[in-house]
């Protein structure tokens, strides 16, 4: 994939950054308010119904959010570590290194993540000696599998980052007498990482959304618990519109999470951006 935003656009974006963020925030606030008004007035959904929140809030919602954050905290660092290492390793000239890794990447990119989650929870524990078995082991294995899954995508991102650094940079570094390691550390890596940040932001947003997949094997994340709640409480009490309020709230939480991550990484990108350096496809 090729980024269509060139350095010129980046420069003008730099200038308007504060204004732009403010405007976008204002627009979103207006949109949210409008949306709430529609819900309340037009559809007659009482969003802040205390019964609903009394039942849903304390356990299901809060525990759910914490659960999701917990899985995110496990999966993101792991997947970045895997993705970076594999991406780097795939630059090797040795086929004994690159071929197995390519198989790994192709596998995890070709299989839907939910399959990976389901079967990792079922088959995963067999790879672990019996004394470590616990009831949460399946979920843990599934989380690890999701890390490997995202790691495969991230390895492509990092690999593209490395390959986008012009070879002349390495030549120049070496011509100054730097070892390969030094060239990597001071010249190639700083540039490769900067290039990797935008697509990485996107991928991390996907990871956040993918944590909802763990619900299908019983994990206590936001999606899972909300699902449990809506099925129990709603179909019991016949307050069908509660369903929509709950799911809207859930959608909002995920949206805030993904938006925060992408905005954070976009900020990092703007702060450390190198003018004149652009990403090329892998």
């Amino acid at each position: 994939m090729v980024t269509t935003v060139g350095s010129a656009t980046r420069r003008s974006l730099d200038r308007g950054v504060t204004l732009r963020t403010l405007l976008r925030a204002a627009e979103m606030a207006i949109g949210a308010i409008l949306f709430i008004i529609i819900l309340e007035v037009v559809l007659r959904f009482d969003i802040l119904d205390s019964t609903l929140w009394g039942l849903y809030g304390p356990y299901y919602f809060v525990t759910g959010v914490l659960g999701t954050l917990q899985y995110i905290a496990i999966i993101i660092p792991l997947s970045v570590a895997v993705g970076f290492s594999v991406g780097w390793a795939r630059l090797s000239r040795l086929r004994v290194v690159t071929w197995p890794l390519s198989v790994y990447v192709d596998f995890f990119r070709g299989v839907p993540p939910i399959i990976i989650v389901i079967f990792a929870s079922l088959l995963g524990p067999s790879l672990v000696p019996a004394r470590f078995h616990s009831k949460d082991l399946g979920i843990l294995m599934a989380a690890l599998a999701l890390s490997l899954h995202s790691g495969a995508y991230q390895s492509e991102i990092f690999r593209a980052g490395f390959m986008s650094v012009p070879t002349g940079q390495l030549e120049a570094a070496q011509s100054l007498g730097m070892t390969r390691g030094q060239s990597m550390q001071f010249v190639v890596l700083p540039q490769a990482l900067r290039l990797s940040v935008p697509p990485l932001a996107n991928e991390l947003a996907v990871v956040i959304k993918d944590t909802s997949l763990l619900a299908i094997i019983g994990a206590l994340d936001l999606f899972g618990l909300s699902n449990v709640f809506t099925q129990q409480a709603v179909f019991g009490s016949n307050q069908l519109w509660w369903v929509f309020v709950v799911w809207t709230a859930v959608a909002l939480v995920y949206f805030v999470m993904t938006f925060s991550v992408t905005e954070l990484l976009n900020w990092v990108d703007r702060r450390y951006h190198v003018k004149g350096l652009e990403a090329i496809s892998a």
Partner: peptide, 18 residues
């Protein structure tokens, strides 16, 4: 933005609930 910012699971459940 909403489509990209929310999990497909949630979108499916939402549609299903409707």
């Amino acid at each position: 933005a909403i489509i990209r910012g929310t999990p497909l699971f949630v979108q499916i459940i939402f549609a299903w609930s409707a």
